[in-house]
Design a protein around this nucleic acid. Structure first.
Length: 313
RNA sequence: GGCCCGAUGGCAGAGUGGUUAUGCAGCGGUUUGCAAAACCGUGGACAUCGGUUCAAUUCCGGUUCGGGCCU
């Protein structure tokens, strides 16, 4: 196993929801004079601190944190947007002589930070909406057929049901006149410079699921209802990412009376478990892991832990 | 005690004398600008005992369990 050492330029803490990433990141920040930088696609929004399990005030007091609750829920974040934010943040942290510690469950973001991504021109809103409208009108099969005409190599990889990727590929082609598959073949750019040391927390499945269930019960009593009520009151576009955060639809249904409390909780917990499962799959197969932990961080935590990592560098 | 109805995979729920729906969950996977998203794949059952039949989850009878009605 690789060991953390002085030539590590940044740390990444990955793992499924409720595995204890935040606590590990804080301890790492304290041990190595670091700053915790958010790598979670939902914790980046301002509106949902409780439901997204953001580090609370107490935790933020234990180490510097940034990029949490910085965007308005009315705007949609994206990997690209996040990557440019982290790039600046990492530079700022390094300028202060501190160690950047990216922490979050959004695997795609972490991957982009480490490997970068192809630079593709932004598609104007008008084209984006036109393609989506076209998809709704003509259907996925027809759209996939259109895509096959201009970008066959990406079309064969997609299925007619994959509305998101079909519209993305089509809108990029319409806007740039160049197939998305070609853009994606361009060398990735924007990766963080230097060497990464990556932690992957992969607790035993049943135990993690119990924690997820318990955590949602706690959120429910800790103000999640008010938080979601306030979000709903904003009347945002239901298609915005923030509206799809686990717990939001379920609590919204409870508040509107279309779902009783037990059902809302049970479904939110289930969605959260399914999310964790997808995270396991992604990290397991696409994430470079330098240090694997098979328990939640709280179970693993002990003094020996850091000294081992420290002195083997 | 008597009569009637039901019993299908973790749950819901069709159906058939031979080729064993489907949905949800579970599990596996994909993932380059919505990723807490979007999508793909997949194991698993016919309460039990006996009978009829070339063949029974499907037909007949007993048993057990559940629901309803009657005295």
């Amino acid at each position: 196993m690789e060991q953390f050492s002085r030539d590590t330029d940044y740390i990444m803490v990955a793992g499924p929801t409720a595995s204890g990433k935040s606590a590990l990141a804080i301890d790492l920040a304290q041990a190595f004079d670091g700053v915790v930088i958010n790598a979670d696609s939902m914790q980046i929004y301002r509106d949902l601190a409780i439901v997204t399990a953001c580090p609370d005030e107490d935790e933020r007091g234990q180490a510097p944190h940034c990029l949490y609750n910085v965007l308005d829920g009315a705007e949609a974040c994206s990997v690209g947007k996040w990557l440019s934010l982290v790039t600046d943040e990492v530079a700022a942290v390094r300028a202060r002589g501190k160690l950047p510690i990216l922490c979050g469950g959004t695997a795609l973001y972490l991957n982009a930070a480490q490997h970068g991504m192809s630079e593709i021109p932004a598609v104007p809103e008008a084209i984006h909406h036109a393609v989506i409208a076209e998809h709704q009108e003509k259907g996925g099969a027809w759209m996939l057929g259109q895509l096959a005409l201009c970008d066959p190599s990406i079309a064969v990889r997609l299925t007619a049901g994959d509305s998101q990727r079909i519209t993305r590929a089509l809108e990029v082609y319409r806007h740039t006149g160049r197939p998305l598959s070609e853009w994606q073949n361009d060398a990735p750019k924007g990766a963080l410079s230097g060497r990464a040391f990556n932690f992957f927390i992969a607790p035993e499945r049943e135990h993690l699921y119990q924690r997820i269930n318990q955590r949602f019960d706690l959120m429910w009593d800790a103000g999640a209802l008010d938080e979601v009520a306030a979000l709903i009151a904003r009347n945002l576009d239901p298609k915005l990412p923030i509206m799809k955060a686990v717990g939001v639809p379920q609590i919204a249904n409870y508040l509107s009376g279309s779902m009783d409390k037990d059902a809302a909780i049970a479904e939110a917990q289930m969605q959260s478990r399914r999310y964790a499962k997808r995270q396991f799959t992604f990290f397991r197969n696409n994430f470079i892991t330098n240090y694997l932990m098979n328990e939640t961080y709280s179970e693993r935590k002990n003094l020996e832990f850091f000294s081992k990592i420290l002195f083997n560098g």
